[in-house]
Design a protein around this nucleic acid. Sequence first.
DNA 1: GATGCTAATGATAATCTTTTGCATTCGTGT
DNA 2: ACACGAATGCAAAAGATTATCATTAGCATC
Lengths: 139, 139
Amino acid sequence: MENPNLKKAGLKATLPRIKILQILEENPLRHMSAEDVYKVLLGTGEDVGLATVYRVLTQFETGGLVSRHHFEGGQSVFEINQGEHHDHILCVGCGKVDEFVDEIIEQRQRAIAKKAGYVMTDHSLYIYGMCGECQKKKM
Amino acid sequence: MENPNLKKAGLKATLPRIKILQILEENPLRHMSAEDVYKVLLGTGEDVGLATVYRVLTQFETGGLVSRHHFEGGQSVFEINQGEHHDHILCVGCGKVDEFVDEIIEQRQRAIAKKAGYVMTDHSLYIYGMCGECQKKKM
DNA sequence: GATGCTAATGATAATCTTTTGCATTCGTGT
DNA sequence: ACACGAATGCAAAAGATTATCATTAGCATC
């Protein structure tokens, strides 16, 4: 019984997939790039190719196991889906990522999409700013 | 009197910059990738390199003349800054981009940032969905 | 208007992230 | 244990963007 989530997503329970899912579940850094995941894999002595990491993460996204985010800075970051939907606030100073939920914003988005004649499928909201610690450092 | 905006941004009035600014101002497609701009330039017989397009767009962004967006799909798109701030709603079917302004969302964002101890510097909100025409096509 | 200094440009190579092709290996049902 | 197709690793390719560097073009000055 490796991980029931893999079967739920219709994916064969292969070693790379099991390991990657485990990393996403257990790593304290909740937002990881493919490269991040790959480095952890290497660190634990696993022989998994970077291409496989990309492939598996994309499959996980398709299967609804993870979300892909396009934070500023070029590369995609992945986050395991657990708990409810949330948006992100990022520190432009130190790169810290916080999460928040705001039902009013969610509502407004749905209303806006409807008014514009769209059926909303997804949305992404990132707030960028300077966190408390970084504000102090700059002074 | 080529274009007062260039001087305002502290940029020398060179031919590539004048041309690129003109394209961004006049092209009906308000959201253009560097490649898009480059193609228009080639079409008008201008001899401007793609690297210059990237450089100039980045300078325009720094100077506040344009905004850079990271829509899904890998490449950055640029939009000239005119009129007030707005967010975007994109059709996942045809790629159409609509704009909207919602003061309630703006307020909530500021409140969320403050509560989290951040000084907000920027934010990006994209709603993805299926537009009216694309909904019909799929049926 | 010619001159000279500096910043800007164009072409190309380099970088970085992500994807693809293909021979080999692994999971899974039998 | 076996066989079949799916999944993997490697290396090469692709796509977007940036860096390098010799050459050229703005612009202030004469």
